[in-house]
């Protein structure tokens, strides 16, 4: 990862913290100041989807032309994506507790997000259970593509077809104002870019550690 991109990530996230807490937000009933959680909770999911997408692309590339590096990249992008997803679900539970009334509300999007996290957890279970390296890489690459394909309807389609309390679905009229609010976009989009870049940064660190590990193993075997 380019150094200047790391700098962009730091600047954008610093701006998110200051702007996200101090800049004007719409005054809404029930959500009140927690509307600011949008700047921190939602970018977790955007980050997760972006990292999972990168992971899937590397998995497809692996199946086209297998290499250790592509497999490594697929694993670590999925790993970092899962981290952001878990943070997203926990921050969402805190937010739901104070605005919807309970941490787990059975909201379609909440359930869908939980299921897709479990689908991705199974990816790591699968990797851990295959001894042969080539087989593990191939099987998990196929499964990774399936996991991404399963996540799209679970998070983006089903919640929009039923009534969900998340914005962009039925119900929750208070949030419809946000859709029009350009003030919030000025913090929200930088936050999304900042978190995606931070996720990529962490993933590249993990990839480099794995590559070092592999090189050391090769040296031992010589």
């Amino acid at each position: 990862m380019k150094t200047w991109l790391k700098g962009v990530s730091i600047v954008l996230l610093g701006y998110t913290i200051v702007g996200g807490l101090l800049m004007d937000v719409p005054r809404l009933n029930i959500v009140n100041e927690t509307v600011r959680a949008l700047y921190f909770h939602v970018p977790m999911w955007f980050g997760m989807v972006a990292l999972f997408l990168v992971s899937t692309i590397y998995s497809i590339q692996y199946l086209r032309k297998p290499s250790f590096e592509k497999d490594t990249r697929a694993v670590e992008y999925a790993n970092t994506g899962l981290l952001l997803g878990l943070l997203g679900i926990f921050t969402g539970m805190i937010w739901a507790n104070y605005t919807w009334g309970s941490p787990w509300h059975g909201d379609p999007k909440q359930n869908g997000a939980a299921i897709s996290l479990l689908v991705y957890l199974a990816y790591f279970v699968l990797r851990g259970s295959v001894e042969n390296e080539d087989q593990r890489a191939r099987l998990s690459a196929v499964y990774n593509i399936f996991a991404f394909a399963a996540m799209i309807p679970l998070i983006f389609i089903i919640p929009r077809m039923t009534s969900s309390m998340h914005p962009g679905s039925g119900g929750n009229p208070g949030f419809n104002m946000y859709d029009l609010d350009s003030k919030m976009r000025m913090v929200f989009y930088p936050a999304v870019i900042g978190w995606i870049l931070l996720g990529v940064w962490i993933a590249t660190l993990r990839i480099r550690i794995r590559i070092i590990n592999e090189k050391l193993l090769n040296l031992e075997n010589e």
């Binding site: 610093g14 200051v18 660190l205």
Partner: peptide, 23 residues
């Protein structure tokens, strides 16, 4: 609160940069 969050953020980023250098 902004100051506290910034301190945590700067600390974490600093840690990440050190980790990056070590690798």
């Amino acid at each position: 609160v902004v100051a506290i969050l910034l301190v945590i953020f700067v600390g974490l980023i600093g840690y990440l940069i050190l980790l990056d250098r070590k690798i």
